[in-house]
Nucleic acid binder design. Structure first.
Lengths: 362, 362
DNA sequence: TCAAGGGTCTAATACGTATTAGCGAAACAC
DNA sequence: GTGTTTCGCTAATACGTATTAGACCCTTGA
């Protein structure tokens, strides 16, 4: 399968340099790597090797370098996002921007493992995941991460960092503090006079969803709100009738999580439109965790969503820094970090309409 | 530098399978690769190899595969953009989206060579460019591409494709038809009654700039407009006084190119604001080549820029397809392609104000 | 003169897979 | 029974670099 080079001249390797400089390949390697052993060589030898390398335009082959078990200054980024790569612009790119910025700043190239995932048919195919070994280390991102293949990587000592909090003990991650941020949003709604809320989350069990739910519940309890029917699971397609019931029950605000599919949010928007409700006059809407810069607008109007914003870019940057620490063998704590989310004012948050105000029970 | 595996169990290789199945490593390779030679082996042998591989959870090492076979299902993307990676969101990401989509669809992973560029200090460092060889082929993108290192790649038969038209004969590219699109914009302005225009381009010699200028000139000639002082070179910081002069000379519309720095456009916006001019009432503005989805708005108001839009995403996709053709050894023509740009209506284009109408001279 | 010690460098090997030439055995033809 | 072909597999090598044990030479000291 070794294709012949059409135009003859093969790219130079260390043995070419060795021949030109009259030394051995091993010497070339020592000199070029600049190791202590290499520096100990005679000045003349060093120089002639460097000259020869320069003359031939030598550049080390990263693949061979990597095979010989050094590092190759490449970081991987593997995404498990459900909708990826179709809805590629959403939720993935803010992360990518941060990752890329920091990687570039640190002199690391970036491998996007999007093709492997596709080839295997499923992104969680163990074989596909194993492919990340080309890189020195890898970032994982996505709500649903297959544990088995990643666990095997961990067993082999392969460095990786999750972007997003993980429940598995010991795995390094850089996440966002959804709990605090979600609680804060509910507190804000309560301060605006909302006493009866609903929180919409999707069906899956991703930590990002659980954390938001936890935060919403905590915020509700701390504000003395009723938490009985607070949490609602939805796939986004069943909201029309529900929304009507909620209104009848005195609900004045709905909190919804932002996911990679956006199912809950889209469904809610459609339901609000269908019901002919205006936001925020009839109903306040809060969005938990839009990616920075993509806040989106509320149904039926140009109002920006209030809620909080996930510091995707910062997470990307931090994750790269942590990964490089791990690659460098630095196992000192902490290897887990939660970044604060930024609260966002928005036109979708307004004081609760007084007519439907329900007095607190306790 | 061989790091010991912390938890003992080394990941299985072909030789492990070979031992378990009682065959040679070569046989394992043949069977697993599924080559004709591999299929020709005895059924029993094949099966025992496959069973052993399954039992051990074998996954081929992509690094070794690449070193031995010269392909690894990875495409490179190397960017020469001046502002990269600071202004990373601009002009680079629409391309990246297209590239990534198509790469994923074709089962290819993507290597972003942003770190090498940084490490070397300059993106056009020959050593940095040479690094793209890890990939099976590479896409180049950016206004200012260093010819020398790329020429060496070409000599070595390394497959690559430019995103953006190139003057060098023979090099493959996927570009945009700036000439036609620019001419069309001028024709539109002429149809709106504008007789005296200025075209702002930056100082550099990138093909993207030359093509737009050529198109503007062609459009002007075809519409019978004066081309004498039409083309203006600027770095964006000298436009305040010039703008005043142009107004005095009866200029009713300014056409400006969009570049990766946006210098000309930004400068024009500032000058228009400083002069207290309103767009499009006092002056029409046309923008040649905003990236899709990032049309931007005119100075002093919310009006969208009229002009044309560069099909960045489509270019990215096409470039990947072409690159894969080249990697596959398909040297049949064509290896150069120009995609049409989409004309864009916009609030910045309006009929020329009649009071300052200057009759044609000829 | 011999041993010891340092300074330079190289031979050998490892990394994990792909590929090719060809070996031994069996089947076939005469 | 001797050539010839085919079949099924393996030994050997290549890919390009990193690493280590130690070879070789030159000093130095006894």
């Amino acid at each position: 399968m070794n294709q012949p080079r059409p135009t003859g001249r093969r790219r130079p390797r260390q043995s070419d340099i060795a021949r030109l400089a009259g030394v051995s390949q091993a010497t070339v390697s020592l000199v070029l790597r600049g190791t202590p052993a290499g520096m100990a060589l005679a000045k003349r030898t060093r120089q002639s090797v460097l000259d020869a390398a320069e003359e031939l335009g030598y550049v080390p082959d990263p693949v061979a370098t990597r095979l010989a078990s050094a590092t190759n200054a490449m970081l991987g980024l593997y995404t498990f996002s459900a909708t990826f790569p179709t809805d590629v612009a959403h939720s993935y790119y803010p992360i990518l921007v941060g990752v890329e910025e920091e990687a570039a700043a640190q002199g690391q190239d970036l491998i996007l493992f999007t093709g492997s995932a596709r080839t295997a048919g499923r992104a969680d195919d163990p074989a596909a995941v194993r492919r990340v070994r080309v890189a020195d280390g890898c970032l994982f991102f996505g709500r649903h991460v297959p544990e088995e293949p990643v666990r095997r990587l961990a067993e082999d000592g392969f460095p990786f960092v999750y972007i997003g909090r993980r429940d598995e003990p010991g795995v390094p991650y850089v996440g966002a503090d959804y709990v605090s941020a979600s609680a804060e949003v509910v507190a804000r709604l309560a301060a605006l006079g909302h006493r009866t809320l609903r929180y919409l989350r999707e069906h899956d069990q991703a930590p990002a969803s659980s954390d938001r739910e936890e935060g919403v519940l905590r915020g509700a309890r701390e504000a003395g709100l009723d938490t009985a029917d607070l949490v609602v699971r939805t796939d986004g397609r069943d909201l029309d009738t529900r929304l009507r019931d909620w209104r009848a029950a005195g609900v004045t605000a709905v909190v919804v999580e932002q996911t990679d599919t956006g199912a809950a949010l889209d469904g809610l928007g459609a339901a609000v439109d269908a019901a002919g409700l205006r936001c925020p006059e009839d109903l306040s809407l809060a969005l938990l965790g839009a990616p920075t810069g993509t806040r989106g607008t509320a149904p039926g109007g140009g109002a920006d969503f209030g809620g909080f914003v996930v510091p995707m870019r910062a997470m990307g940057r931090d994750a790269v820094r942590l990964l490089l620490r791990l690659i460098g063998g630095d196992r000192s704590e902490p290897t887990r970090r939660l970044l604060p989310c930024e609260p966002v004012e928005g036109g979708t948050l307004a004081p609760a309409p007084s007519p439907t105000h329900h007095p607190r029970k306790d």
